[in-house]
Nucleic acid binder design. Structure first.
Lengths: 205, 205
DNA sequence: AAAATTATTAATCATTTGACTAAATTTAGG
DNA sequence: CCTAAATTTAGTCAAATGATTAATAATTTT
């Protein structure tokens, strides 16, 4: 693999391709994306894409990995911080995710689509299973909701309340007659609403 | 356009293709689907697909329309039934959708993806905007939540709590360590949980 | 500055894929 | 049965597309 020393130019070109690839892939998915689209969006010659990344698939895998990373980083620091109460964790999680999703609204649909298309790739990969179930967060949740309700319901609800609005963004703006600015404002409101709702769910069952 | 009189056969072949097309399209999306896949899944010759449906695009549009129809029918009868209380409407909506989604878990991702890809096609189409905002349901919601909270928040939450688990099905089964059967059982539990939660949201703001 | 390495381009290739054609086979009505 | 319409098939085509190549330009190294 070639690594250049003339960093100024190469990093810029490679980065240009990656940026364009993230944009086009995330918007259209793997199959609907043509390498020519990416090349054009990046303002480079088609052959350069293969020069730097070997193949469409390799480039896609790279982007996908970085996207998944975005998702994980937004949780990581919250779920296992033992100094935070359950409510504080929920609040931080919701706040962090909504901020991230405001910047990357296409991300959830992109990732979930990909999981559906290739479940096997994600089955083990992150070992998210164990990490999640053993997290301080999940233990707190079990303790707080003990007996009244399956804590998985709470987790699913928290994720749904936070992520779903972005997945269905355009659809919701359509049926509810609000525009982009109003939508973003509402998402900010949800930073306070969701933790309150989740707290109620835990207590009320 | 040829219409046969030997109805037995034609309906069966045409239906076979449509069933196969729905399956493959919904699983893989438009671009990733090859007409040859559909033909194979339907157990028919490739040319037959074009014989009955003219083109891949036409077939896709048909399937998409039917899928959207599924979504709408599940709401239609509930939203404007003036004899139902708000809580009854929510309960019926959630019940109906969860049942529909258990049978068609790929539907939401498929439709939302398509809306993202071609927003213009859905912008006016259903005029869902007006229909929804003028529904008896929405008016009841406004009355019940008056002042405390934007009713759109409630709608978004209700949809999210109901639909999101199916969109993220595989992902959730992964991180929460539950299998398909447990998942379906949980979805049944949510038929009772979600209306209760929504009621709390409305009252508490 | 010469040589070597790295970056970029235009042109081309090979494969995939949606669509079409023309012929063969089956079915329905007389 | 016979004929015409309906159905089905194999074979083919043209466009799209991922990838490669060979030549050229730019940059770095010696």
């Amino acid at each position: 693999m070639r690594r250049s020393k003339t960093n100024g130019t190469i990093a810029s070109t490679e980065e240009k391709i990656k940026l364009a690839a993230r944009k086009v892939f995330t918007e259209k998915g793997f199959a609907a994306t043509r390498t020519r689209d990416i090349a054009e969006a990046a303002g480079i010659n088609l052959a350069l894409l293969n020069y730097y990344f070997r193949s469409k698939q390799k480039l896609f895998d790279l982007i996908m990995m970085e996207n998944v990373q975005l998702f994980i980083e937004a949780i990581k620091n919250v779920l296992d911080n033992e100094r935070l109460t359950l409510n504080e964790k929920v609040a931080l999680f919701v706040e962090g995710y909504i901020e991230m999703l405001k910047k990357n609204p296409d991300l959830p649909l992109f990732i979930l689509q990909e999981i559906r298309r290739h479940p096997e790739k994600f089955a083990n990969q992150l070992a998210a299973k164990e990490i999640f179930l053993k997290s301080h967060f999940f233990k707190q949740l079990q303790a707080a909701s003990k007996g009244r309700i399956n804590p998985v319901h709470i987790v699913v609800s928290m994720l749904g309340l936070t992520i779903f609005p972005f997945i269905a963004g355009l659809f919701l703006q359509n049926i509810t007659n609000i525009n982009q600015v109003q939508f973003d404002k509402m998402m900010d409101e949800r930073k306070k609403l969701i933790p309150k709702w989740v707290d109620t769910m835990i207590k009320a069952g």
